[in-house]
């Protein structure tokens, strides 16, 4: 049984290989980029605008709003990274309705790559916001004893991110595969619909967790207000 699209290899030359994960990722990238380009090349600032523009505006503003709600004051700064995370994972899940398609997020390599990106992005955004000293100081807060725990937490949450997304996406595909052998009609369709839902939920979870990590890293520690002490 195939657990990951990594195993479908179209071409290999030593260390370099072209597997289904990379190919489907390129396909997704192509669809997303071309679709965005096609829609945004006809943007208008008038009151009357196309449905596609409305859809994209809704998606973008919703993502920005979510980022803001989590606690990042300037969502536009993080929109590129976090928004793309969400859109890529969501698009990868939505495309499971296409026959023959293997979601790249069903590969642990992909989810690890995304989690690594988050792991790198968190300190980068934190440093950009707080400065190097302040950011690394947060690892020894409240005492330096916390440093190893903080480091372990960074690694474990990255691992959790990668495995959670992989597990969900892979299990969805696995369940459909197994069900197709048991009950070939109707039930797999229901499970596919359920898979779309869990895929969207996972995309949202991945996105919101990354946002929360970045928000935690960028938040400057504010002194407690005096009146709080009095009360």
């Amino acid at each position: 049984m195939r657990l990951s699209p990594d195993e479908i290899i179209f071409w290999q030359s030593g260390f370099f290989k072209l597997n289904a994960t990379i190919v489907f990722t390129w396909a997704l990238m192509l669809v997303l980029a071309v679709g965005a380009k096609l829609i945004t090349c006809k943007l208008t600032t008038e009151h009357k605008r196309s449905r596609w523009q409305n859809l994209l505006e809704i998606v973008v503003t919703l993502i920005a709003k979510q980022i803001e709600e989590v606690g990042l004051a300037h969502p536009k700064k993080y929109l590129g990274f976090l928004g793309t995370l969400f859109l890529f994972v969501a698009a990868a899940s939505l495309c499971t309705v296409i026959p023959g398609y293997e979601p790249p997020t069903g590969s642990l390599s992909t989810t690890t790559a995304l989690a690594l990106c988050v792991m790198v992005a968190v300190p980068l955004f934190g440093i950009a916001e707080q400065g190097v000293g302040n950011y690394f100081k947060s690892y020894i807060q409240p005492t330096f004893i916390m440093l190893p725990f903080n480091v372990i937490s960074e690694i474990s949450r990255t691992l959790a991110l990668a495995v959670r997304l992989f597990g969900n996406m892979m299990s969805g595909a696995m369940i459909i595969g197994i069900l197709l052998t048991i009950t070939p009609f109707i039930f797999p369709i229901v499970m596919t619909a359920l898979g779309l839902l869990t895929g969207m939920v996972q995309a949202y979870i991945f996105f919101i967790l990354a946002t929360v990590y970045i928000a935690a890293a960028t938040r400057t520690r504010e002194p407690k207000p005096e009146h709080a002490l009095i009360t």
């Binding site: 290989k17 597997n19 990722t25 390599s109 690890t112 790559a113 995304l114 690594l116 992989f166």
Partner: peptide, 16 residues
């Protein structure tokens, strides 16, 4: 389950 070449390629893909 982790193919490190794919991981690197996916990181690059994601950044692109």
């Amino acid at each position: 389950l982790i193919d490190w070449f794919t991981v690197g390629a996916q990181v690059l893909n994601f950044l692109i």
